[in-house]
Amino acid sequence: MQRKTIFWGILGLIALGFPLVVRSPYYQHLVIISLMWVVIGSSWNLLAGYTGQVSFGHAIFFGVGAYTAGLFPTHLGLSAWWGMLAGGIISMLVALFVGWVCFRLRGPYFALATLAGGEIVRLIAINWESLTEGMVGILIIQSFKSKLPYYYIVLILAVASILVIDLIMKSKWGYYFVSIREDQDAAESMGINTTLYKNVSLLVSAFFTGMAGAFYMNYMAFIDPEVVFSLHFISIMAILVGIVGGVATIWGPAVGAFIMVGLQETFRSSLFGLAPKWISQAHALAFGLLVIFVIMYLPNGIVGDWATIKRVFMRTRRSAG
């Protein structure tokens, strides 16, 4: 109990103090992006890890959130920060429709439907130019020069999403979600309205993912459909963050987010300039290998299989010493 308090205290201090100590905008940027992925990964995990409805289309909610924020300045003459709340809500409305269509299907068919849905929404965003500016994208003026405000905003968002999901998982909803994942027919015969609760899970997931998208618009000040509705960089990344960190664990996606963003950046920068340039092309391959490794040796992710990891390290330490 005592040790736990100390651990959380230190972690809290690090989280609050990080951008004050580490002044490099580059590292601040990486942590801001990681925290954004904590939000998306945790949201994906609520739906896929806990409720068992594996989404290959979370870019839908991220992109809708981002575009909602972008439309405030371009179409309404208001600040894009209004999009933070509106982005979550509009994403939920879109999720209502996605759920209505996709939850008619189960298992892999649901996953495929969300995959198709993501591609459809991306094409709509490209072609509906009067609303989205199409491939030109949306450019806004950043509110802050410093990264500090962005850092604290996304930190609050990340902490809030984890706390809310943790609370949900300890409530009746949480029991219902996991029951649905384990056996939908059994859940239904236990009096659980499985259609309703799958939609509840999707809506909460879409809300936070949409907020993350709106944050991205505000922070990066530029979006286009190929970025925010990207299958590869958003939908698949959300899955990787969840799987690497550990599905159906509260902290898994948070750990996964930092690892995946770190890995992505390592490759993008060709191992920080140390390796030849072509290495940056290999990041898809590296992601693939990482997923294969995790699925084979840590099927429950880094957090889910922490006990195994610890055991392996203890053994090597003992045999070394």
């Binding site: 219902y176 056996d183 059994a186 236990m190």
Partner: peptide
């Protein structure tokens, strides 16, 4: 069910708690 459908990755207690929520709201 004739072919039993345990909620496998939940504890026995959680299996039954989940169905208790049918009539009860508080955890």
């Amino acid at each position: 069910f004739q072919v039993v459908k345990p909620l496998k990755r939940m504890t026995v207690l959680d299996n039954v708690t989940a169905s208790s929520f049918c009539r009860i709201n508080s955890i």
